[in-house]
Computed example of a mutant assay.
Amino acid sequence: MASIFSKIVNGEIPCHKIAENDEFLAFLDVFPIAKGHTLVIPKKEIDYIFDLDDALYTRLFLFAKSIVPGLQKTVPCLRIGISVIGLEVPHAHIHLIPLNSMADADFSKKIKQSSEELALLALDIRENLI
């Protein structure tokens, strides 16, 4: 059974896309813990990030790194944190989280953003990637 992320990759479920290439997709988390919380995934469905072959693993992290400048320009913060937990969805993914304090990395606290707010934020981040 395809993961929710594979359904997003296949266009079966919409997302607030930040960036995409042949191998990877970055999009806003619809249950963010901070404004700008972005998910970065390989398009190939592999459950556990450490099961990615070395080359794909490296390219995934380089793709994630390419998102950071646009995210930092759009969402004022001290740093962009990175987290890989891997329990929520059986599809390897990286969380990019704008942080101003350690409390901003608390996955038990979600913030509310409407679909319209997420769409505008994704547009702003995309424009700042250029």
Results as ranks from 00 to 15, higher is better:
His91Leu: 07
Gln113Pro: 13
Arg79Thr: 12
Ser115His: 14
Ala105Lys: 07
His91Met: 04
Leu71Cys: 00
Ile97Phe: 08
Asp104Gln: 00
His95Pro: 06
His95Ser: 13
Val84Arg: 08
Ile85Gln: 13
Ile97Lys: 02
Met102Cys: 09
Leu71Asn: 08
Ile85Lys: 03
Ser83Glu: 14
Gln72Asn: 14
Lys73Phe: 08
Glu88Trp: 06
Pro98Arg: 01
Ile111Tyr: 01
His95Met: 04
Asp104Phe: 06
Asn100Glu: 10
Ser101Leu: 05
Cys77Arg: 12
Leu99His: 06
Leu118Gly: 08
Leu71Glu: 04
Val75Tyr: 06
Ile85Gly: 10
Asn100Ile: 05
Val89Ile: 14
Ala103Val: 11
Val75Pro: 04
Thr74Asp: 10
Ile111Cys: 06
Ser83Pro: 12
Val89His: 01
Thr74Arg: 02
Leu71His: 09
Leu96Pro: 09
Ala103Cys: 12
Asn100Phe: 10
His91Phe: 04
Leu78Gly: 15
Leu78Met: 14
Ala103Ile: 06
Lys112Gln: 15
Gly81Gln: 13
Ile94Arg: 08
Ala105Leu: 00
Ser101Arg: 06
Ile97Gln: 11
Leu118Glu: 10
Lys112Val: 11
Lys112Ile: 13
Pro76Phe: 04
Pro76His: 05
Ser114Cys: 15
Gln113Ala: 12
Gln113Tyr: 11
Ile82Gly: 15
Leu99Thr: 12
Ser83Ala: 15
Pro98Ser: 05
Pro90Gly: 10
Ser114Trp: 11
Val84Leu: 02
Glu116Asp: 15
Lys110His: 07
Glu88Cys: 07
Pro76Asn: 00
Glu88Val: 07
Ile94Pro: 00
Asp104Leu: 01
His91Glu: 11
Ile80Arg: 07
Leu96Glu: 10
Ile94Phe: 11
Leu99Gln: 09
Ala103Trp: 11
Leu87Pro: 13
Gly70Ile: 06
Pro76Ile: 03
Asn100Trp: 05
Glu88Phe: 05
Leu87Ile: 14
Lys110Leu: 06
Gln72Ile: 03
Glu117Ala: 02
Leu78Cys: 10
Pro76Arg: 02
Asn100Met: 02
Gly81Pro: 02
Val84Trp: 09
Arg79His: 12
Thr74Phe: 08
Glu116Met: 13
Gly70Glu: 08
Asp104Met: 03
Gly70Tyr: 01
Pro98Cys: 00
Glu116Val: 12
Pro98Asn: 10
Ile97Thr: 04
His91Gly: 08
Leu78Phe: 13
Ile97Gly: 03
Ile94Lys: 00
Val89Trp: 07
Phe107Pro: 06
Ile85Asn: 15
Leu118Phe: 10
Ile94His: 13
Met102Tyr: 11
Ile97Val: 11
Glu116Asn: 14
Pro98Val: 07
Ser101Gly: 12
Lys73Gly: 09
Gly86Leu: 07
Ile97Met: 11
Leu71Trp: 11
Gly70Arg: 04
Cys77Thr: 09
Lys112Tyr: 15
Phe107Met: 15
His91Gln: 03
Glu116Gly: 14
Ser115Asn: 15
Ala105Arg: 05
Ile111Trp: 03
Leu96His: 09
Lys110Gly: 11
His93Gln: 09
Leu87Val: 12
Asp106Val: 00
Cys77Tyr: 10
Ser83Trp: 07
Ile82Ala: 13
His91Lys: 01
Ser115Arg: 14
Phe107Val: 10
Ser101Lys: 05
Lys112Ser: 15
Leu71Phe: 07
Asp106Cys: 07
